[in-house]
Every structure is written in C-alpha cells, then in structure tokens.
C-alpha cells in the first residue's frame, strides 16, 4: 500500500500514516535537492513539516472522494496515493509525468486518484471544490471533496464566496485551511485580525474547528466528523489545521522567514517524530517497524528519482496538444 488511506470508519493505521508522512518528507527533500541541481524549473513548494494534515485528512476519505490542492501540493498527491515516480517525472518536466511535462510541480493532476489538480493561483480552487461536490451529489454520488488551502488563501474573495455558496447548497465540502503561519514572506498575523481562521465559518453558518495540524490523529478525528457531516448532506465544515512552514516558502524563494527560536520550537513538534513517539508508546509500532517503514519510504523515493531523471524530455510538438478536447461539434471535428 503506497498511501495512508484507511477504510473510512476505521481508525488511523499508524504504520500507513507513518509511511505516507515519511514519503512526503523524503519526496520534498529530494525535490529541493533536484532544484538545486537545476533539474527543476521555475519553483517548487515543500510540504515539509505539514505532512500530518494531508495524511490525516485524506486517510478519512474513500476512493470515490475528491481533493483539490494548492501550489504546495506534493503532500496531498502522495497521501492520495499518486505514484511518486510519475509525480517526480512531472516535477522534472518529463514525458511520463502526470501532466506529460506541461504542468510541473504546481499543477499535478490525476483524476484516477480523485485529485482534481494542484493550483498555482492562491484561492483558485475553493469554488471548484464546491462545484465538484455539488455536481457529484447532483449526479447521485455520495462524494465528499476535501479542499486544501493556506492561511493566505483565506484572504482571497473567492474563499468567502465559496464558503457562502457551499453553505447555501449544503455542498459536501471539507475546507481544510493549512495555517502554517506564513504566506510567502508575510506573517499570517499581519494580514488578519483574528487568531483562528476557523471562526470565519460562523459567518457563513457552518462549523469551524481548529486542530493541531502536527498531530495526525487530531487531524484525522476532525476529518472523520467533517466527512461524516458532508456525506450526510448536512453541508460543509472548515477545519483549520495549525502547523508551521519548516522550510523556506519555495525552492526559488529561499529566504528564511521564521526565527531560529520558532523553528526550534516547531522542530520539537515535528509531526513525523510525534507520530513515532506516540505509536511506540501505545505499542502500535515497534522501533523495528518504524525503521523498516522509513527504509521503504526511502526506497520508493530512490526508485522515483531513478525513474524521473532517466525519463525522456517531452517531444516539443506535444506543446500544441491538449489545448482543446476533441470536438464533435466543429467543422473538422476538432478545434485547432
């Protein structure tokens, strides 16, 4: 099993969760290394330190459910079970990448995994999540959509419009605000006058909760409740998962923003180590199992790297494909 997905209704499997979180950590560490070797173009935004959120939320979803993601999306993809080899191929702009090299780090999309697409536009996917959730229901499916976004995105107008729309439509959406304290170089506290973003839900008439985003069990518990509510037709929930961006904003914008004290304090709360400590103390995992899980995650990343760096560059002609879907309603049955 390549993801921490558990069957809904069951409790979080510590081994699966650890594997997913470790996979995300190693993946993004590798992406930064490859960026520094100039193999990644543009930018890439590490999910390092935030692994418990994607893992906890997505473990509460079923196969029929959907997610939307952000510029910082690798963690969501891996937790949803995407193949790290094809993800890394995309990040390197190679032929076998999920988007055939057209999207890169910020746009990984995999409908077969219920991954509607990462989004380089901050706040770009709130409304998309609402529409996907509502229409899925309209089509008779009991799909729930988890919509991931940052603290910064909660200041876009689209967030507020989408919350209100989801509320009046009773859309089965779980809004997941990953409050990592920063939007690029700007502190969340300097662009909003509230402590908890979850309080915004009240303005739209649905529940908002704040959880420890570094505690995968706490995230999972909140997700279970929100998913059940959405699935029952009672409408959206806003989960604010408080965490910290343990890396620079991106591989391109490397400037350190947090203070050393902050980083040290949050390092103490590393979500992966927190899970390991807890699992060992409860007896869910042994030291050997932890070590073996890490070796497996490492091996998956090595294999992904091997695949991606050796994969071919896309054929330049493919740049002209995919602009339009084939059309049966045009003169030549296609659009240029």
């Amino acid at each position: 099993m390549t993801s921490g997905r558990a069957t809904p209704g069951t409790t979080l499997d510590a081994g699966d969760a650890l594997f997913t979180m470790q996979l995300i950590r190693y993946f993004d560490e590798r992406v930064v290394e490859l960026y520094n070797q100039k193999l990644v173009r543009g930018s890439a935004h590490p999910y390092i330190g935030m692994e418990a959120i994607a893992t906890g939320i997505i473990s509460a979803l079923g196969d029929q459910d959907l997610i939307t993601s952000t510029h910082r999306g690798h963690g969501h993809c891996l937790a949803r079970g995407l193949d790290p080899s094809r993800m890394l191929a995309e990040v390197l702009g190679r032929k076998s990448g999920y988007c055939r090299g057209k999207g890169g780090s910020m746009h990984i999309t995999a409908m077969e995994h219920g991954m509607l697409g990462a989004d380089g536009i901050v706040g770009g996917s709130h409304a998309i999540a609402v529409g996907a959730a509502y229409a899925s229901r309209l089509q008779g499916r009991d799909t729930v959509v988890a919509c991931f976004f940052g603290d910064g995105a909660a200041n876009e107008g689209s967030f507020h419009e989408a919350c209100n729309l989801a509320s009046v439509l009773d859309a089965p959406v779980v809004f997941v605000c990953e409050n990592n304290g920063w939007a690029l170089s700007t502190r969340a506290s300097s662009t909003m006058r509230i402590d908890d973003i979850s309080t915004r839900a009240a303005g739209y008439g649905f529940p908002g909760v704040t959880v420890d985003g570094n505690d995968v069990h706490a995230v999972r518990a909140a997700a279970d409740e929100a998913v059940a509510r959405a699935r029952s037709g009672a409408g959206p929930t806003l989960i604010e998962a408080k965490t910290h961006r343990m890396s620079a904003h991106s591989a391109f914008a490397t400037g350190e923003t947090s203070t050393t004290e902050e980083l040290a304090a949050w390092a103490e709360r590393d979500p992966i180590e927190a899970l390991v400590r807890r699992s060992i103390s409860t007896g869910e995992l042994t030291d050997e199992a932890v070590a073996e899980t890490r070796v497996r995650a490492r091996a998956a990343i090595e294999a992904a790297t091997e695949h991606a760096v050796n994969d071919e560059q896309p054929d330049p002609e493919t740049a002209f494909e995919d602009v339009y879907a084939s059309s049966h309603w045009t003169k030549e049955m296609r659009l240029a």
């Binding site: 173009r41 543009g42 702009g93 090299g101 057209k102 999207g103 560059q313 896309p314 330049p316 602009v323």
Partner: peptide
C-alpha cells in the same frame, strides 16, 4: 507566442 497556454517543461516552453 503560440496559441497555447505556456507549458512547464523546457523543450515545450521554448517551442511556444
């Protein structure tokens, strides 16, 4: 530029 969105990979972006 070509009538396409701008793609990510180097060979594709240079093409358009």
């Amino acid at each position: 530029a070509a009538d396409t969105p701008i793609p990510y990979a180097g060979p594709l972006e240079r093409e358009v």
